[in-house]
């Protein structure tokens, strides 16, 4: 019987079993000291790979994610441009927006203050308009 004594190996003939055992013996032959040297060889290769891997890792990181970085940059540029354009339009709209105030709602003090502040200007403009029209009117507001 083979190494595995389960019933499934009943289909393996004694001839095959003997050949398999010989095959195993042959396969398990290694040079003397092989496994001690194997450990040394593996660790040497790992050390050699370490130093070169450090640089490669950095490069490969960017290379691997390059397309995502490009897409993100493009999106950021478009988003920034849109926001800037939108903001500029809003400002203009805000500047162009004029609040219409109903004069009846204004307090009398405010109206009187406005009139007295602008009275002289209004008189000058009024006189200029009269002069331009070719007539003269004396003011009764002394």
């Amino acid at each position: 019987m083979g190494l595995n004594d389960n019933m499934e190996n009943e289909s393996i003939s004694k001839e095959l079993e003997a050949a398999l055992n010989s095959f195993k013996t042959k396969s398990n032959q290694v040079p003397e000291g092989y496994f001690d040297q194997f450990e040394v060889d593996v660790m040497q290769k790992i050390q050699a790979n370490k130093s070169s891997q450090n640089k490669v890792t950095i490069i490969s990181l960017f290379a691997r994610h390059k397309k995502y970085l490009v897409a993100a940059s493009l999106f950021f540029a478009i988003a920034t441009g849109y926001l800037f354009y939108n903001s500029a339009e809003n400002k203009t709209a805000t500047m162009a927006q004029v609040d219409v105030i109903d004069i009846e709602t204004l307090p009398d003090e405010l109206i009187e203050a406005y009139v007295s502040n602008n009275e002289l200007i209004a008189e000058v403009e009024w006189n200029s308009a009269i002069e331009n029209a070719g007539t003269s009117i004396s003011s009764t507001n002394n």
């Binding site: 095959f23 195993k24 396969s27 398990n28 290694v30 040079p31 496994f35 194997f38 450990e39 060889d41 593996v42 290769k45 790992i46 790979n49």
Partner: peptide, 27 residues
Amino acid sequence: QEPVFFQIKKMVIEHADADDIAQAVWI
């Protein structure tokens, strides 16, 4: 290392090939 190496060697027979593969495995 031994059971892994012997499994690989049964697959490829040649010791040199098994050695290369086994080293690659552990790396």
